[in-house]
Nucleic acid binder design. Structure first.
Lengths: 145, 145
DNA sequence: TTTGCTTTTGCAATTCTGTTGCAAATACAA
DNA sequence: TTGTATTTGCAACAGAATTGCAAAAGCAAA
């Protein structure tokens, strides 16, 4: 089961051109459990034929424009992209783990946090719960850069 | 009542050096109803003796480090700073309310829930709990800008 | 007040993240 | 295969934020 074939059909169905960059990026986003920054995607695609930085920005924005991906600014003011099909729920409904070493964001399935009591007059629209620390990869000295 | 005298004493009490830049920036943040970007602060201080851009960045970060201000990235991926309501410990584990209208950050006294179970190898150092919504001021149409 | 040490400031240059303009390459339909 | 609009890659640009280092300023002790 080639995920790229699914994606290829998906793109074709909406009258969009099927290009390697779009296939690879969307497949990557769909395979990822966490939001990916432009840099993350660039690194992930560097193994095969490298994709130009600008093309990557444009593909990512195009995916967002097409409603196939979501774009949010993380705490470090970096845009993170995630596939829309999986993450269609309002962002922030789940908890995040932020690695303070590598800056990566992981989604924690766990724990739908309840909003605490707010002062009078305050209205909450969204709750964000982030756990900061060191991810499994950065926690192991032998893996550190 | 000179707010700068309050601030001057506040800084001195914690063994920090009292400089014009720190006084002016913190006074400005305290007087502001919404979160200010670096550019906002630079403009606001341009009337008097202009403060160097880099100094401004450093003063703002220093205030955050001291727990006297909060720093968040807004939707346009620009950092916005606001005075901390409670001049507490250096940004400990407490909950925040972020107003999506004015960008201001309020500290909530409620303690965040304990860190959820993390994947193997992950270590948590800090838990951040943010509630997004509309603050009491922005909730009232007659007060809105 | 003066001295001396430490912190802070200001300038220049640099990094990081993302954009824009334009010509060449490519997808896709005819 | 050909024609055409779309997409790509390169280069240059732009704004936000950071870094290195010498000069200036704060503060305590003499």
């Amino acid at each position: 089961m080639k995920p790229t074939q699914d994606i290829s059909r998906l793109l074709r169905e909406r009258g969009a051109r099927v290009t390697p960059a779009r296939l690879r990026v969307l497949a990557l986003l769909r395979a990822s459990l966490r939001g990916l920054s432009h840099h993350d995607v660039e690194q992930a695609l560097a193994d095969g034929t490298p994709v130009d930085r600008v093309t990557l920005y444009r593909v990512l924005d195009w995916l967002v424009e097409q409603g196939l991906a979501h774009k949010i600014a993380d705490e470090q003011r970096v845009f993170r992209f995630s596939a829309a099909a999986r993450a269609d729920a309002p962002h922030g409904a789940h908890a995040h783990f932020v690695c303070d070493d590598c800056g990566k964001v992981f989604c924690l399935d766990d724990l739908p946090p309840a909003a605490p009591q707010l002062p009078a007059g305050f209205a909450s629209t969204q709750v964000e719960f982030s756990v900061h620390g060191h991810c499994a990869h950065c926690n192991h000295p032998e893996h550190a850069a």
